[in-house]
């Protein structure tokens, strides 16, 4: 464990807790893409299949349980909670996210480190996580503005992957044989997807005005 990875995990934890807290407190999920939340639930479900078979550390298992629990809770709130579900604008959140999953699955079947059931699904979860934010970013473009909690959610989510890139660089230089190209490229693509959002987020913060994403 290094400081970059710990910072990344804490930022990631903060992003899901900020979102869960927002939805639980104000009983609204306006501006949040259910499609992205569903994709994240699938990412965690396929990423942590080994939670029962391989034990790395208490921390590792605890965090996996938190991520699984929070992502499925967010989906549950948005789909089934009597008050929250009414605030979900389904006619704006129309990204065909199943079309994201198929290419990720095909790519995982083609490019992976080992051709085993767990490894292919694990690789699928990496590719899917890289693109899972797209429905949310499309929704933001459509709704034109962003309330600060959703903005914080995306900002933290982007930051977590940015910290992970620093972690991979650190581990590459400090641990022999630590080479995972698939993870690194998927993580880099994911962070680049956030780059333009970060740019507009920073502009809005600098000019102290409401964040307006260009159409």
């Amino acid at each position: 464990m290094n400081i970059f990875r710990l910072a990344g995990d804490m930022t990631h934890l903060a992003s899901v807790l900020v979102l869960l807290l927002k939805i639980h407190t104000i009983k609204s999920c306006a501006g949040v893409s259910l499609k992205t939340q569903e994709l994240y639930a699938i990412v965690f479900a396929t990423r942590y299949l080994d939670i029962l078979t391989s034990f790395v550390s208490i921390y590792n298992t605890l965090m996996k349980l938190i991520f699984l629990g929070s992502s499925f809770s967010i989906v549950w709130y948005m789909k089934y909670h009597k008050t929250v579900r009414r605030t979900y604008d389904r006619d704006q959140d129309t990204f065909r996210h199943w079309f994201l999953m198929l290419p990720c699955l095909l790519l995982a079947l083609l490019i992976h480190e080992k051709f085993t059931f767990f490894e292919v699904l694990w690789t699928f979860s990496l590719y899917l996580e890289a693109v899972a934010i797209l429905p949310q970013l499309v929704l933001l473009q459509r709704t034109r503005n962003i309330d600060n909690l959703t903005g914080q959610y995306i900002f933290l989510l982007g930051g977590y992957r940015g910290f992970y890139i620093l972690n991979w660089i650190y581990r590459y230089f400090t641990e022999p044989h630590y080479v995972h190209w698939i993870t690194w490229i998927a993580g880099l693509v994911q962070t680049l997807l956030y780059a333009d959002f970060f740019y507009y987020y920073f502009l809005s913060w600098k000019n102290n005005k409401k964040l307006q994403l260009p159409a």
């Binding site: 590792n60 965090m63 044989h177 993870t183």
Partner: peptide
């Protein structure tokens, strides 16, 4: 198993 393989990241 060889350490490099263990999935120790979230």
């Amino acid at each position: 198993p060889d350490k490099s393989y263990e999935k120790d990241e979230l």
